[in-house]
Simulated assay, not measured.
Amino acid sequence: MSCNVVVTGATRGLGRGIARAFASCGAMVGVTGRDASALADVCTEIEAHGGKPLALECDHRDDGAVAAAFARVRDEMGHLDILVNNAAAVYGQDLIAPGPFWEKPLRLAEMIEVGLRSNYVAAWYAVPLMAAAGKGLIASISFYGAVSYFHGPAYGAAKAGTDKMTADMAADLAPYGVAAVSIWPGFILTDAVRAMPPEMIPDDLRAMLPTWETPEFTGLVIDALYRDPELMPLSGQALIGAELGIRYGIADNDGKQPISYRASMGAPRMPNSAATGEQP
């Protein structure tokens, strides 16, 4: 059965691939982004993959724009099954530049605004569209940087905050049949990476690319998670996408099984009875 999905920050990277994956499952897919032209391109891809698109031009720094986007979701979808919180303020070259955080541009702190706060705001507007139906899933994209050093403190704070916020949301959502989880994908073979000329890719990185995940893989495991009869016991947890792939028998587009980096980069922290608020 097809479902109604919103993917934030879906004009490029992981979000765009997630939108394509849901489209391949026959979903109606609402996609947010600031660039109308890029949104139109994503909507064309959604249609080509068998889905029904809804373009939601939206800057996630602007709460009013987010409110307007979800008002359209309510009016044009009627209800919402899945929210994928993917929007993030990512400045790639600044993130990977050498040096400590105070020697990098202050704008990296925007990841806490768009990437953590924006997840809260999108969920705030999405939940009423789910709770009325007694079922729904909020899947917020996080990463191993929540528990290990990766790209510095702003990135780490955004991811760790997302995981804790997810655990606390799950406690509030449990009586309404709505689940909240964080999803940790692996390293992503985005459209931009795939389009890079081989001679422009450093040798060590080129050797790793065959092990990287397509962005569509994350969308497929979120779809399977939503349909899992045991979804609610997983609510509040940070879940590794590669491990969900094994749970649900989902391989990547090229047939490989994506890698869990649990052993080398860290394991998700378990909440204390997030669904009930009980203490251990």
Rank of each mutant, 00 (worst) to 15 (best):
G186T: 10
L189T: 03
A154S: 13
A192F: 01
V178H: 06
A207H: 08
V181A: 05
V193I: 11
Y155L: 03
E199L: 06
S182N: 12
A180E: 11
R206H: 06
D204E: 15
T211R: 14
D172Y: 09
A167T: 07
M196I: 05
I201D: 08
E199I: 07
G177P: 08
V181K: 07
A180K: 07
T211V: 05
P202H: 13
A170W: 02
V181I: 09
A157F: 06
P198G: 12
A174V: 11
L209W: 04
L209H: 04
I188F: 00
A170T: 09
V193C: 00
P202V: 14
G177R: 02
R206I: 03
E199Q: 15
M208W: 02
A170L: 08
I201G: 11
A167V: 07
F187P: 01
M208A: 04
K164D: 02
R194Q: 06
D191E: 14
I183A: 03
T190C: 04
K164Y: 14
M200F: 11
A174W: 07
V181S: 05
T162A: 12
T190Y: 00
L173Q: 06
P198Y: 11
A157I: 15
I201H: 10
A157Q: 08
A195Y: 00
A174E: 15
D203W: 01
P175K: 10
M169I: 03
S182A: 15
K159I: 01
K164R: 09
M169F: 11
M208C: 02
A207I: 03
A154G: 00
F187R: 09
E199G: 02
P197Q: 09
G186M: 01
T166A: 01
G156Y: 05
P197G: 13
P198S: 13
I188S: 02
A167R: 01
D191G: 05
D203E: 15
M169E: 06
M169S: 04
P210M: 12
A195I: 01
S182P: 08
G161S: 08
A158L: 03
P197L: 09
A167P: 06
G156D: 15
A195N: 09
T211M: 01
K159V: 10
M200T: 09
D163N: 10
L173M: 10
V181E: 04
A170K: 01
I188T: 13
K164T: 13
T166P: 07
D191V: 00
G161P: 09
P202R: 15
P175G: 08
T211C: 00
G186I: 02
A171F: 01
M200N: 14
G186E: 10
P175Q: 08
Y176S: 06
R206S: 13
R206C: 00
L173Y: 05
V181R: 04
I183Y: 04
A160I: 04
A195R: 13
P197K: 14
K159L: 10
W184L: 05
W184M: 09
L209V: 02
T190R: 13
A158V: 01
A170S: 13
M200C: 06
R194M: 12
D168P: 00
V181L: 02
A195H: 10
L189F: 04
M200W: 11
L189D: 12
P202L: 15
V181P: 04
P185C: 02
W184D: 09
I183L: 12
